[in-house]
Simulated scan of single mutants.
Amino acid sequence: MEAKSINAELASYTAKLFRDNFGKGPQSVYVSIEHPFVTIYLRDFLAPMERVLVRQENFMKIEETRDCLMQELIPEIKATLRVTAKINIDNIYYDWSIKNRTGLLVGVITEDNDEELKSFSDYPQKQRVHDEIIKMSKQAEKAPEEVDSLYLNSRTLVVKRSGILVEIEKEFIRSGFTESLRLSKRKLEKGMLDPGTFEEILGLNVLDIFVDWDFHFDISYITFILKPQKKNSF
């Protein structure tokens, strides 16, 4: 099956999966498979019940509910990617922009490794992007032990951080407060990631910024969705 057909099939599947489980699916879904990642970008995604919570500005309740549902959906998404696209996914990261009614899923393809990521990661603004990410991380928790990044395509920039958790966060995780930590860090870090700063560095408009963590491995991914260059792009 051609790549475009696979992406279209995965987009259709994702829209139906979210519609069946959330009561309303996204208006549009964009799938991109660019090793070592699979990205699934959702637009105009807000369930009817969530609209009430938005009016009340109770965004964290929406995120908490979605996070619970995603734990049930992730195994099914992994299985579908394995059957449809013939790829194995090590982990799926996800985040939401409730105000923009968007969301992003980032799947890490199992057979790829960090060395392959580094070989495709060079771009002119790389060090300046890393400097800003390190600056934000220092303010939020501590400087990462390692930072890497790459453009998946002209509209998607992924930044990986390793070794960012401080001891109090690790204790929260050991004590079973993972979801509370995730919600708090999501709000804190995204509030500190200034789109204007990265627009100046990259020379492109930033449409969305998404952040997620694997607390067990002390890894985080920050994904920038940039203004498309083609009229038919999202």
Rank of each mutant, 00 (worst) to 15 (best):
M70I: 06
Q71I: 01
V108M: 13
R66D: 08
L73Q: 02
K61P: 00
W96S: 01
D114R: 04
D67M: 05
L73T: 01
M70G: 01
A85I: 10
P75Q: 06
L53K: 11
N113E: 07
R101N: 08
E111D: 13
E115F: 10
N91S: 08
I87G: 04
W96E: 10
I62P: 04
E115S: 09
I109Y: 06
Q71K: 10
N91C: 02
D114G: 01
R82C: 05
Y93P: 00
D67T: 11
S97P: 07
L117T: 13
V108Y: 04
L117M: 15
R82N: 11
R82A: 11
M60F: 03
L105N: 13
I98S: 04
F59G: 03
F59S: 08
D90S: 13
I92R: 07
R101P: 00
L81K: 10
L53I: 00
D67R: 14
T65C: 05
E116F: 06
I62W: 06
N113W: 05
E64P: 00
Y93K: 03
L104C: 02
E111H: 13
D90E: 15
S97A: 06
R101E: 15
I98T: 05
N88I: 05
L53A: 09
N113V: 12
D114Y: 09
E64H: 03
T65R: 08
I109W: 07
R55T: 14
V106G: 05
W96T: 12
V106A: 11
E63Q: 14
I92V: 15
E115A: 13
I87Y: 03
